[in-house]
Amino acid sequence: MMYEGAVQDLIDELGRLPGVGPKSAQRIAFYLLASEQVDVERLASTLIRVKNDVKFCSICGNVSESEQCRICTDTRRDPTIICVVEEPKDVLAVERTREFRGRYHVLGGAISPIDGVGPDDLRIRELLVRLRDGVVTELILATDPNLEGEATATYLARMINPMGLTVTRLASGLPVGGDLEYADEVTLGRAFSGRRRVD
């Protein structure tokens, strides 16, 4: 059974969102119908504002409300180190560690030939332009620890190593809080190859 007019339109629009099925869309629609007018108007204006005001930083590709993001304009950040990540949400993940004080470069995805995504579809050319002025001395490849991420890191390292920069890759190995017996051979193998001296 279909609802009438605006209610069905809202369910259809919500159903187009990732991870929202028809049942969830219906539940959200009726929640919104029952909500206060002011709450719904705030949600609607936020949606319009995020589309109108948020753009991508012209330097690093992170989401930003101005031409350049807060990290790229922050003079206290170390301009000699760039951390390369796949998506803007990865910037937030690294920032939460409070370990990294350099700058970022967001690629906008990872190389995935099976999905038709090649090096030209990512912001690799923009990264090479950033490295040209000689300020950057180290590049940290923080792409996802899956095969697309590994292959993207391999591709970048192959391109950038001849430029004489220090290219590093995030360590991978055993997760904190896990049991050794449940680690798969690839993860355990990487943990062995990346072991470090205990003083």
């Binding site: 030939p113 095969l147 590994e150 292959a151 391999t154 591709y155 690839v186």
Partner: peptide, 25 residues
């Protein structure tokens, strides 16, 4: 249970990894 992590072993070689993608597709 892994019988051979071929993909993971090939991700560090870009040429071979792109060949794996074409084979899988």
């Amino acid at each position: 249970e892994s019988l051979g992590a071929y993909g993971a072993q090939l991700a560090s070689d870009y040429s071979r990894w792109t060949a794996v993608s074409a084979i899988c597709e």
